[in-house]
Design a protein around this nucleic acid. Structure first.
Length: 632
RNA sequence: GCCGGCGUAGCUCAGAGGUAGAGCGAGGCACUCGUAAUGCCUAGGUCGUGGGUUCAAGUCCCACCGCCGGCUCCA
C-alpha cells in the first residue's frame, strides 16, 4: 500500500494505482499529472511511493514540462511520417521548449523544412490522438525497438538500470520514454520550431552526429510570442553588432580568429575599466605586477599545466634549444614572485594582482565575439595567506567583488559555493579551513547562496558569482577559489610566528574574469547605451548652424575637454535633427546643443539620450549633472 | 575539431551560368536650417582565398580560411 496526502487529507492506495484514479479519489479535476517527492508523474503512471501529492494543473510550470515532453514526441512522429527512415535519439525538454535528436537517412534538414514539420505537428495535435503508456520488461522492449529499427533506443534500454521500461504510444507512433506525457496530443499548447543543429549521439564526438531540431512551447500564443520577442531582444543587444556599430573592437581573420583588436573608442572603454580596477585594488593593498607572456616549459612542467592543460595551450616554441609556451594562466608567474624571497608571516596576506593577458587554444567552432576568444586579459589576483587569515581574506575578497560588480550596474548577483569533489588533492584540514572560510564569508555578509556539492575543482573549493543582466540572463564572471595544488607543486613556504616553515594557502580570484568577455556582457546589459562614466564619447556638441555657432561650440568643447570630459563636435553640414539622430544612434549620453540663444547667454541646451530635451542650463549646472554620474 | 548554414561596396542585403545592383554610410556642391534623416552629384567591387568544370563562373564542383547556430571541451 502507498499512502498519499493532499491538503492534509491522507488516503491509502494499492501500489501501482494510476495517478488518474488517485486524483479522482481526492476529487481533483483538470490536472495533467502530479508531483510526488519532486518527481513528475502523468495520469497513466502507477504510484509506488508514499508522500504528499501536488496536482499539476494545465497552465502551470510543471504542466509545461509535460506538454513540452509530449511535443518532442509529436515532433518525432511528424518526422517519421514525413521522412520515413528516421531513427530516434533522445528528445528531452529544455528551459523553454524541447528538442529531438534524430538520424534521417538521405535527408539533411534545412530551415525551410521546419515549417513543413510544424504543419505536420499541428495536424497531429488537431487529431487529438490518445497518448497511451505501457510498461514492458527490458528484453521485450529491446526486441520491440530492434524490430522498429531503432538502434539508438535499443542502446538506451541496454544502458538503463531498470528491468521494466515504459513506452508511450500515440497513433501507431511508439517511443521509449519514462514520461510524463499529456493524456492526448490535443492538449498541446502554442509551439514553434526554432532552429537546427548537429549533435553527437550521447554527446560523444566519436559517435555519429544526429540532427537536432529545437522548438519552444508555451501554453498560450502570448507567452510564445513574448519568448520570441525575448530572442529578438537578445539579438538587438548582441555585443558583436553593437561593437561594430560603436567602433569598439575588431576581430580580423588576417590577424587571427578569436583575437581581439581594441579600436580607439573601445580602448577608451577598456582603459576606464582597467584604471578603475587598478585604483580600487591599490586602495585595498593589492600589489600590482606585470609578468611575461611566455614562460619556459620548466615552469609549466612544475605547475602541471603541460600534463593537465596542454590541450588548451598554444603549441610550444623552440628558443635556443629551450622550450617556451605562451601563457594560458598567470598563476605560475605570481608564484615565482612569491618565491623570489623568503616570506615571513608578517608579509601575509600577500595580494598580487595583474591584468594579465593569456592565450588559450579554443576549438574554432566555439569562438564567439568577445565571449569566447583565444587571447584575453584576466583581472587576476592571487592571495597568499595563512590558514588563520583565510576567513578575513575571503570575506574581504567577496565584499570587494560584489562592490565592484555593483558599480558596473550589476546589482542582482547569485552565489554558488562548490565543495570538495570525489577526486581531489590536499589535506582534509585544508579543505575544512577553506570551505569554512568560504561559507563563513557568505554567511557573515548575510548573502544567499546555493551549494554545489562536490562541484569544486580537484585542487580546492570555490565561490562563483553570477550576475544577472538587464534581461535576466545569468553570467558567471567572478570566482574565488582555493588552490592546494600550486603551493604544493612549487613548494611555497612562509616562516611562521614560531619560526617554522609552513605552507601557505593560495587563493585565485577574478572579478571580471576576462576583460573582453566582461565588456561584451556590459554592452549587452546596457544594449550599448553605456552609463556616462563608461561612454567613450560622453557628450557631443551640436551647433545649430555651423557657420554661426561653430566657434561657440568649440569654446564649450574646449572647456569640457580640459576638465577631462570626453566631448566631440558634430561639424557636418547637416541640419540639427540629423545631428541629433546621429548622436542618438551612436548612443552618446548627452547632446549639447548650441545656437544663437545659448551663445548670447553663455549657456547650453542639454539633451539626454534617454530622456530627451532637458533645457537650457549654465556650464556649471552641466558640470554638476555630469559629475554626479561618475563613480568616485 | 565535428554537423549544418553563410561569406557580393565601410555597413545591411538583392542577384543563382551570359555587361555586378539597392539602401545606409563616405566625398563634393547647394540649402542657413532649433532637438531622431534637406536635396542633388560623385566615387567605391580580382563577389573570402586557391584550384577545377565550361565558349562563358558571385552563380556549378573541390580544398582551405573566416563567420553564424549547435555539439564537444572548460586545469
Amino acid at each position: 500500500m502507498v499512502s498519499l496526502c493532499f491538503e492534509g487529507q491522507w488516503k491509502e492506495f494499492e501500489e501501482g494505482t494510476k495517478v488518474g484514479e488517485i486524483l479522482q479519489a481526492f476529487g481533483i479535476e483538470d490536472a495533467l499529472g502530479v508531483e510526488i517527492d519532486n518527481e513528475l508523474l502523468d495520469l497513466q503512471t502507477g504510484v509506488f511511493k508514499s508522500g504528499e501529492i501536488k496536482p499539476i494543473k494545465r497552465g502551470s510550470q510543471g504542466a509545461l514540462e509535460i506538454m513540452r515532453h509530449s511535443l518532442s514526441h509529436i515532433l518525432a512522429q511528424a518526422l517519421k511520417e514525413l521522412y520515413g527512415n528516421v531513427k530516434l535519439g533522445i528528445g528531452p525538454t529544455t528551459e523553454d521548449g524541447f528538442y529531438y535528436d534524430v538520424e534521417i537517412e538521405n535527408k539533411q534538414l534545412s530551415v525551410d523544412d521546419l515549417r513543413v514539420i510544424e504543419e505536420k505537428m499541428k495536424q497531429i495535435v488537431q487529431k487529438d490522438y490518445k497518448i497511451e503508456r505501457s510498461e514492458l520488461d527490458k528484453d521485450s522492449a529491446i526486441k520491440l525497438f530492434q524490430e522498429l529499427g531503432e538502434s539508438y533506443k535499443v542502446e538506451l534500454i541496454e544502458r538503463l538500470g531498470e528491468n521494466i521500461v515504459s513506452v508511450y504510444k500515440q497513433d501507431g507512433f511508439i517511443d521509449l520514454c519514462k514520461g510524463p506525457h499529456l493524456p492526448s496530443t490535443g492538449f498541446a499548447g502554442a509551439f514553434k520550431l526554432t532552429h537546427l543543429a548537429g549533435a553527437y549521439w550521447l554527446g560523444d564526438s566519436k559517435r555519429p552526429m544526429l540532427q537536432r531540431i529545437y522548438g519552444i512551447a508555451f501554453w498560450s500564443e502570448e507567452d510564445l510570442k513574448s519568448r520570441l520577442d525575448f530572442y529578438e531582444e537578445v539579438k538587438r543587444r548582441d555585443h558583436r553588432t553593437i561593437g561594430k556599430d560603436m567602433e569598439l573592437f575588431l576581430i580580423d581573420e588576417d590577424v587571427g580568429a578569436g583575437l581581439v583588436i581594441w579600436l580607439p573608442r573601445g580602448a577608451i572603454l577598456r582603459g576606464i575599466i582597467e584604471d578603475f580596477w587598478k585604483k580600487e585594488h591599490r586602495a585595498r593593498n593589492y600589489q600590482l605586477v606585470y609578468t611575461p607572456h611566455v614562460g619556459n616549459s620548466r615552469l609549466w612542467q612544475i605547475s602541471g599545466h603541460i600534463e593537465h592543460y596542454s590541450q588548451s595551450m598554444f603549441a610550444s616554441m623552440q628558443i635556443e634549444s629551450e622550450e617556451y609556451y605562451v601563457k594560458p594562466m598567470n598563476c605560475p608567474f605570481h608564484v615565482a614572485i612569491y618565491k623570489s624571497k623568503v616570506r615571513s608571516y608578517k608579509e601575509l596576506p600577500l595580494k598580487l594582482a595583474e591584468l594579465g593577458t593569456v592565450y588559450r587554444y579554443e576549438m574554432s567552432g566555439t569562438l564567439h565575439g568577445l565571449f569566447r576568444v583565444r587571447g584575453f586579459t584576466q583581472d587576476d589576483a592571487h592571495i597568499i595567506c595563512t590558514p588563520e587569515q583565510a576567513n578575513d581574506v575571503i570575506k574581504e575578497t567577496l565584499s570587494f567583488t560584489i562592490e565592484m560588480l555593483n558599480v558596473f550596474g550589476f546589482k542582482d548577483i547569485e552565489l554558488f559555493l562548490s565543495t570538495r569533489p570525489e577526486d581531489s588533492i590536499g589535506s582534509d584540514e585544508h579543505w575544512e579551513v577553506a570551505q569554512n572560510a568560504l561559507k563563513g564569508a557568505l554567511e557573515s555578509l548575510g548573502l544567499d547562496y546555493k551549494i554545489d556539492e562536490g562541484g569544486g575543482a580537484f585542487y580546492g573549493p570555490k565561490i562563483d558569482l553570477k550576475i544577472k543582466d538587464a534581461i535576466g540572463r545569468l553570467w558567471q564572471c567572478s570566482t574565488i577559489q582555493f588552490d592546494f595544488n600550486l603551493p604544493e607543486r612549487f613548494d611555497m613556504e612562509y616562516i611562521s610566528h614560531e619560526n617554522v616553515r609552513k605552507r601557505p594557502l593560495m587563493i585565485h580570484r577574478a572579478i571580471f574574469g576576462s576583460i573582453e568577455r566582461f565588456t561584451g556582457i556590459l554592452l549587452e546589459h546596457y544594449a550599448g547605451a553605456l552609463p556616462l562614466w563608461l561612454s567613450p564619447i560622453q557628450a557631443r556638441v551640436l551647433p545649430v548652424i555651423n557657420k554661426r555657432d561653430l566657434d561657440y561650440a568649440k569654446y564649450i568643447q574646449e572647456i569640457l575637454s580640459k576638465e577631462g570630459f570626453r566631448v566631440d563636435i558634430d561639424e557636418r553640414p547637416e541640419r540639427l535633427p540629423a545631428k541629433v539622430r546621429q548622436a542618438q544612434i551612436e548612443k552618446i549620453p548627452y547632446m549639447i546643443i548650441v545656437g544663437e540663444k545659448e551663445a548670447q547667454s553663455n549657456k547650453v541646451s542639454l539633451r539626454s539620450r534617454s530622456e530627451g530635451e532637458i533645457g537650457i542650463i549654465s556650464i556649471e549646472e552641466l558640470r554638476e549633472i555630469f559629475n554626479r554620474q561618475i563613480p568616485k
